[in-house]
Design a protein around this nucleic acid. Sequence first.
DNA 1: CCGCAACTTGCGCGCCACGCACCTGATGCG
DNA 2: CGCATCAGGTGCGTGGCGCGCAAGTTGCGG
Lengths: 199, 199
Amino acid sequence: MNDDAMNLRARNKQATREAISRAALHLAIEQGPNGLALVRVNDIATAAGVSPRTYNNYFSSREEAICAFQADQSRRAGQALCSRPADEPLSEAVIEAMVELYTNPEPDKTGLRMIMSTPELEGEALKAFTMAEGPLAEAIAARTGTDLRHDPHSAVMAAAVAGAVRVAGRYWLGPGSTESFATVLRRTLSCVFPSAPPD
Amino acid sequence: MNDDAMNLRARNKQATREAISRAALHLAIEQGPNGLALVRVNDIATAAGVSPRTYNNYFSSREEAICAFQADQSRRAGQALCSRPADEPLSEAVIEAMVELYTNPEPDKTGLRMIMSTPELEGEALKAFTMAEGPLAEAIAARTGTDLRHDPHSAVMAAAVAGAVRVAGRYWLGPGSTESFATVLRRTLSCVFPSAPPD
DNA sequence: CCGCAACTTGCGCGCCACGCACCTGATGCG
DNA sequence: CGCATCAGGTGCGTGGCGCGCAAGTTGCGG
C-alpha cells in the first residue's frame, strides 16, 4: 500500500515532531529574545495540538524543540557531501554540499536571528551545528582515503567547516548584509581551503 | 593594603565559585556518565559548604557548574594570544598560546573523559570552548591588521582553532593515546595552518 | 566607629522532567 | 476479514529545580 518509504506510523511521528518544533519556534519569536521563560511548555503543546506529556516524549527542553530543524539539518551533512560527484575536488565538493544543505530552503532570517540572539538557544544551536562534524569527518576521510582514527586532518577540517558555517550565519544575520546566505557561506568556507580557487 | 590585584571580597567570591565547581565535578565523576541526574544540587552545595540557594547565585544548572573551569579557561584565550611576542609568526603564536593555555595545568583526564562522555555535559563544554572564539577572533584580527567586521578570515580561523582544540581533546581522551596533550594539540592545530613549519 | 553595599541564606512559588498505567489506533498474520 | 500485538499518545502524580523576595551577615570606605 502506501509505504512511501515510510510507515504511516513513522510519518505521523515525523509530522508531530515538526508540528511541535514549528509551534515552539513560532511562540519563541512572538516573545522575543528576552521572553524565552514565558514560552511555557503547555503553550507549545497546545499550539501543536498535542498533550504536554507528549511534547516531552519528543523533546526534553524548549531549546531542543526550537532548534530541532537545525539539528535535523546537521544530521544530513555527511550524506550531503557523499552525494557530490566523486571526481570533484574536495574543497569544491565540501563548499557546494554545504551551500546546498544550508540554503535549501532559504533559512528563515527572523527565526535564526531570534535564536542567535538568545544565549540559551544559541547554545542549543551550537550543539546542533556540531552534530554535523562527526558525519562530515567520516565523509571527508572517505573522500581523501585517510584513516579517521589515526589522522586528525579530516576531523579538524570538519570542525573548521562547521565553524565556517556558523560564522557565515553570524555575518549574514548582522546589520549590513545585503548578500544572499549562499554568497556569505561560500566566502567563509573558502577561508577554510586556502588553495581554493576564487571561483 | 592587601589588594593582591583583587579585593578580599572578590577573592572569596572566586574561591566559592571554585569550591562549588570542584564539588560538582567531583560528585559527577563519582556517579559516572549515566548518573548525572543523581547529582542533586543539594549535594553539590553541601559538599561545597554553601547553601543550595547560594549555589545558583553562581550557576543556573549543574552542567554549568561542572564545566566552569573550561569556561574560565576559554575566557582567557584572547589574552593568551595577545601575550605572545608580536614578532612571532601568526601560526606559531596561535599554537603556542593554545598549548600554553590548555596545558597549564595539565588537564584532568578523568574529569574530561567524564564530561565528554556525558551528552549534556558535552553540550555545556562545547559552549565553553566556543566562548573562546570571540576574543580569539579579535586578537587574530589585531595581529593581522584586518577588520573583523568586514573580513571573515579571523573569525573563521578562530572557529577552526577552537575546533582543533576540541578535536585534540577527543583524540587525547581516546583509548590509544600515549602522547601528552600538548603533542596532540600541536598536531591538530598545525592542520589549521597548512603553511605551518613542521616544527 | 558608622553606614553602605555586597553576599549569603531561608522561604515559597510555579514550572518542568519523567515514571507508571491506561487507552487508541495502526500493523501483520492466519 | 477478524484477531492478537504493539507502538505511541495521554492523564496523573511526584520530586527536583530556578528564581524572586526579604531578611540577616560581613567586609569596606569615610
